[in-house]
Simulated scan of single mutants.
Amino acid sequence: MSKHKTVSFDNEPLILVDGEDNVTGYETKVNAHLGDGLLHRAFSIFLFTENDEVLLQQRSGKKPLWPLYWSNSCCSHPRRGETYEQAVHRRLREELAVDADLKFLYRFQYQALFGDSGAERELCSVFVGKVPAPVRIDVNPSEIAAWRWMPSADVDRLIAEAPDRVTPWFVMEWQRLRNEFRAEIDALRPRGMISAA
């Protein structure tokens, strides 16, 4: 029997927001992603090592949107009554069984359709952290099919050569990290990585 718990639920309420991140209501996760999607609060996390590697995850094949696509280290939604700070650390523990110091970099709005299956329409806050290498993680198989630490230059190549294998938000976020935030990422100190088990 797996020690990992199921941490995502179709009926969990997502926080609906306007473009300024003001709460406008709540909707179940499944309904918020139907059709063109409803704008909701979300976050993405990128974990780097001091060797300029970044943790990528391959999304579980059971995900209704972008199953088995490669994406950033961790991403999800804050829950009702939860701050961003609480949400990002909770999700790191749930998906990777680790925690780390994280820095908020920026927030952006996007919409991406996945055929007729639904859409992501998010106001997404992007966080980064740096951890010492080598790092031992323990992925939650209900969320993650595979994972790897990849040099940043190889991530550039993956996105350029296999855009159909990566999630659209990851591509948008990575390009902005590389173009606008290299100095902030380089300045991060590797610390705070602990086992959450």
Score class of each variant (00 low, 15 high):
25 G>D: 06
156 D>Q: 15
20 E>L: 11
49 T>W: 04
82 E>V: 08
51 N>K: 15
109 Q>D: 06
19 G>D: 10
7 V>M: 04
20 E>W: 03
84 Y>R: 00
48 F>E: 03
70 W>P: 00
16 L>S: 10
158 L>E: 15
133 A>E: 11
119 A>C: 00
44 S>Y: 04
172 M>R: 13
61 G>A: 15
93 R>L: 00
138 D>C: 08
153 A>C: 13
36 D>A: 08
6 T>C: 07
61 G>Q: 14
173 E>D: 15
187 A>L: 05
21 D>H: 05
156 D>P: 14
44 S>K: 10
36 D>S: 07
168 P>A: 09
18 D>F: 09
49 T>G: 00
185 I>G: 10
131 V>A: 05
140 N>C: 13
71 S>F: 11
121 R>V: 01
37 G>N: 08
181 F>S: 13
56 L>F: 03
153 A>N: 14
118 G>Q: 01
132 P>A: 01
33 H>T: 03
76 S>L: 02
164 D>R: 12
86 Q>A: 10
102 L>R: 03
165 R>C: 13
175 Q>L: 15
177 L>K: 05
121 R>D: 00
172 M>I: 07
13 P>R: 15
127 F>Q: 02
133 A>D: 14
80 R>H: 10
151 P>A: 12
95 E>W: 09
173 E>Y: 06
118 G>A: 02
161 E>Y: 10
174 W>R: 08
20 E>I: 04
86 Q>F: 05
84 Y>S: 04
132 P>K: 02
54 V>L: 08
115 G>Q: 07
120 E>K: 00
122 E>L: 06
150 M>E: 08
141 P>G: 11
159 I>E: 10
91 R>T: 08
170 F>N: 06
168 P>K: 04
120 E>P: 02
102 L>C: 01
34 L>E: 09
84 Y>I: 02
186 D>H: 06
74 C>A: 11
176 R>E: 13
23 V>R: 13
44 S>D: 06
18 D>R: 11
167 T>S: 11
93 R>F: 03
46 F>T: 06
125 S>Q: 02
35 G>I: 01
151 P>E: 09
117 S>L: 09
125 S>T: 07
125 S>A: 08
100 A>H: 05
51 N>R: 15
11 N>S: 15
143 E>V: 05
69 Y>C: 07
52 D>H: 14
122 E>A: 00
28 T>Q: 10
87 A>E: 03
21 D>Y: 00
52 D>A: 15
1 M>L: 07
85 E>T: 04
118 G>W: 01
23 V>W: 11
82 E>A: 10
108 F>A: 07
